Simulated scan of single mutants.
Amino acid sequence: MLVRRWLDTAGITDPVLRECYTLCVRRSLTERSGLGWLVTLGAPPPRRAACAAVGILILEADERVDTGQPEARLQRFNEWTDAWYSALETGTSSDPVLHAAAHACNTAVVRPSRALMEECFTALRRDAEFTEFATYEDWLPWARGSTGASAVWIMSMWGALGESGASILRRYGELAQLVDCLADVSEDLGDGRLYLPLEDLDRFGVRRQDLEAGRWTAATAELIAFEVARITGGLPDLLESALQHPWLHRCASGLDELLRTLCEAVLAAGPLLLRHVAVPGTGPTVRTGLTMWRAALVS
């Protein structure tokens, strides 16, 4: 019912397009990380379906480099991005996600650039050809592309971000990617990947074999605390900048609360961080969602 109302508000009347958007919204609202429904419900009602479509497009690309036989991942990813650019150019696709996302991007007030899409896809493609990061400076371009460019792309469905808005979102993306690397460290190691900068492990004397074996040490605790402090230390200035943006200010407190909630979940996990993905409690996540949802209603 709500999806139909959002599509009506957006002026989308074509039956096939409505069906494609509905599929994207439903997938976004049930996406396993819980971020999909924040992205969707946090958007202004007329733009919720568009945000969901772009979000699922990127998620589909990400899944192709994270799942399936490793030797086939890059090919699957390239086939998906090729199909995307074809859909974007022609405005149509037999795939419902591509069809809806193409419409969303082609009808956006400010169409996202090919360069922005390539920034996102280049970072995701790196996961299929994974090499570890020697330093934090090596890690940053990947994080800003993987999560930062994705955030800019999705939220460009809201309207014109401007240079300052894009910069703010890339910074949020960078911090969000770091906490994601911390929360998923056990899962990533199981897939043969270590995303944390190697210089940080060396700084605290953390041995990779201890991480892989799930052995929690005092050095590991210090490393995790250092990375979390790197995130939380950057949040106050970022929040202040976001509050000055013409419309990002409406969701700034929600983004701040989300990152703090994720950081708290990582710290609370302790030794279990090396055995399971750190997931925040339902209550804090719901509160964050309600903050963003209320902001969307007054936009």
Rank of each mutant, 00 (worst) to 15 (best):
S94T: 14
L140Q: 00
A166H: 11
R203F: 02
A72P: 04
T67K: 13
P271H: 01
C251R: 09
R4F: 08
A53C: 03
R287Q: 08
V65D: 03
I12W: 07
G11T: 04
P45K: 06
C20T: 14
G234H: 14
E137K: 11
R4P: 04
A160C: 13
L211M: 15
S94R: 14
D200R: 12
S150V: 03
E31W: 14
T22A: 07
T67A: 13
G34N: 01
R48D: 13
R126M: 03
T107C: 12
W293H: 15
G214I: 07
R287D: 07
D138Q: 11
G205E: 01
G270M: 03
A151H: 03
E31C: 12
S86D: 00
D95Y: 05
R171Y: 10
R203I: 02
D180I: 02
E222S: 08
Y136W: 12
T122I: 13
L198Q: 11
A176G: 14
G281A: 00
E63S: 10
W139I: 05
L161K: 05
A61K: 13
W6D: 11
G190F: 00
R18M: 03
G234E: 15
S93L: 05
R294V: 03
R215M: 12
A87V: 09
P96N: 08
A115E: 15
E212W: 02
D188Y: 06
A295Y: 01
D184R: 01
V65R: 04
I168H: 08
T122C: 14
S253D: 07
A221I: 05
V286N: 03
L178M: 13
R48P: 09
E264C: 09
A143Q: 01
R5D: 10
D237N: 15
A221P: 07
R294I: 06
G68C: 04
D202K: 00
E19V: 01
L238T: 13
I56F: 06
L259S: 13
R215T: 14
A100M: 10
L124R: 11
E63V: 05
R4A: 15
L267E: 15
D256V: 07
Q209M: 06
A295G: 02
I231R: 07
G283M: 13
V54K: 05
A100K: 11
E212S: 12
Y195I: 04
M155N: 13
G173T: 09
F226R: 01
D200Y: 11
A61M: 15
L74E: 02
E129A: 11
G36H: 06
G190W: 00
R5L: 08
L88V: 00
P70I: 05
L297E: 06
Y136N: 03
L259E: 12
D200M: 10
A296I: 04
I58K: 12
A50V: 12
E212T: 10
G91K: 10
G162V: 04
